[in-house]
Nucleic acid binder design. Structure first.
Lengths: 325, 325
DNA sequence: CTGTTAGCGCCTTCAC
DNA sequence: GTGAAGGCGCTAACAG
């Protein structure tokens, strides 16, 4: 593997000159540039990124921290992030935190030793101060840690409102909510949106809300309890699509026809929702867009370009499919 | 961020000595070792990976090339690979090839400039020679390129046989196969397994085999054609779970009861299969295991430890669920 | 415009 | 046992 020295020798110039043409920095005569270029081509020379990183203190790499890459939301995100980094000449390092703070910290410290340029935090167990003290650019997803840390998120509350309102409009008379984990802000926001719509109705009662932990099986169980307790239930709004699918399964198992006697709306818009029958009506986030945005923001920050917006709140979209009338 | 120099100064020794205790190499007096350790602790010193990479020509990173991280098979794989690398102090770089040779090549060259230690090739458009010439350790998944390149794969043909045989045993009288893309060896093997079982039956005809491209929608379409052409069809063996789900959807849409009038078996054992109703009967690969194995093998190769086996062919397991009687 | 030189942080002979 | 010095490959002043 040729080095810059080989090139300089072949071109009959100094390494500094080669470096200059490589980085298009400083003046260099057209003729010498050509000589250098030829030498580069002849030797198939490609600059060594590691050496470059050492001097630049930047590795052209960024890390994506997710709780679980197996979760459709996060792998769609990963897909987008990877796309952008690839495009801009960065590499993306994948980190599975399992939502464990210790893991996150370990990753972050390990990666800083590699001159990682920035982090996209989709997993998010770190406190505001911890993130602040990272002294590396960070973008967080779905959670505003502080005004100084850029975020991209969806309008969860408004989305939830739309979903529940839609159920109402389609004729539901009693709607339950299977919500995500306590203290996870997106779960709270969606639950809040549900409440915004139903709180004042005659039929509402707090035990229409069950915890499903963003998890299929727990949601199935929650749906079962719900059905036992409220035989007249005819609508379920789930805090995410996975839980909606869990509920759908429970409902189908009981032989209750969907959407005729039970309508279901999920949240996220993961492609999985189209794979079940009936296909899931859902409040779709632009997951891929969120990934693109987050990655582009981060790269801008790394390259010290100005950000147009610090906090993106993306609109969501109701996608009407088979689980509603 | 402290450097080795800071440590040496504080400990009153030379950098060489610090390096020695760091790498446990060469002799160093017990007392000086202690002094060094203390200095390290006091300064919270962590060696700089980039500098280390530059001299060692190894970055403690490996790359995972997949066609699409969004595919459940590959993200489960990624999960496993990441787990292992994390455990052994490596980082894993995620690469989405979209099954495009150009992309793969670009990734590989870019990463070699970063002193990537090895590749796990799950995406696989490269020819044998190209892989051979990489002069970096490689493990391939689901495809044997040459005897010198380690692989991990499932026993696809035997698995397919089991799946089809099971359909027969459960009373199917006419079984179709929706297969994966031509020229993809795993698709061929599974198709071959299907043929092994049905080829000699009275009802078999080649137009019971349709191409579904490992893709949900194409499989749905294939199932529709199949149902049009063979109204007496009562069993479908799909080349993977995604296609099985596509078929299931088509069948359900026509109001054909599953498993009573139609039974379906998939292949892969992705967790998605449990999310539909009825849940998918499938030939499960140990996807996570495959990932663990591949990563461990690769790391062994990188660290020049001997491999017990060059080619793993993992057993598969029939998981009996709701789409069969 | 171009070359010289001094790092970046670490590892590795080679003397002592 | 330990230290000095050179080198990994590249960038960034600073001269000229």
């Amino acid at each position: 593997m040729a080095t810059i020295k080989d090139v300089s020798r072949l071109a009959g110039v100094s390494v500094a000159t080669v470096s200059r043409v490589l980085n298009q920095k400083g003046y260099v005569h057209e003729d010498t540039e050509k000589k250098v270029m030829n030498a580069i081509r002849e030797l198939d020379y490609i600059p060594n990124d590691v050496a470059r990183s050492l001097t630049k203190k930047s590795a052209k790499m960024l890390a994506l921290l997710v709780p679980d890459i197996t979760n459709p939301f996060f792998n769609e995100l990963a897909r987008a992030v990877e796309k952008v980094t690839q495009l801009y000449g960065y590499a993306t390092i994948l980190c599975n935190s399992d939502d464990t703070p210790a893991n996150e910290k370990q990753y972050i410290h390990a990666l800083k030793q590699k001159y990682i340029d920035g982090f996209i935090l989709a997993s998010n167990t770190l406190s505001a101060e911890e993130v602040q003290q990272l002294d590396v650019p960070v973008v967080t997803l779905d959670r505003t840690i502080s005004d100084t840390i850029p975020t991209v998120a969806s309008d969860n509350r408004e989305g939830a409102r739309q979903g529940v309102q839609f159920l109402l409009d389609r004729g539901c008379n009693k709607i339950a909510h299977i919500r995500g984990p306590q203290q996870l802000s997106i779960a709270d926001e969606r639950c809040q949106g549900y409440l915004d719509v139903v709180q004042e109705t005659a039929w509402f009662s707090p035990d229409l809300i069950f915890e499903g932990n963003f998890n299929l099986n727990q949601a199935t169980e929650a749906a079962n309890r719900l059905l036992d307790r409220h035989p007249d239930l005819d609508g379920i709004f789930a805090g995410n699509d996975i839980m909606a699918m869990g509920a759908l399964r429970a409902v189908q198992k009981r032989g209750i026809p969907v959407p005729d006697r039970m309508q279901i709306v999920g949240f996220d818009g993961i492609s999985l929702g189209e794979m079940v029958y009936p296909e899931l009506t859902t409040i779709a986030q632009s997951i891929y867009e969120m990934g693109l945005l987050a990655a582009r923001m981060l790269i801008k920050m790394i390259e010290r370009k100005p950000l147009d917006t610090m906090h993106y709140k993306l609109p969501v979209e109701l996608i009407r499919r088979g689980t509603t009338r």
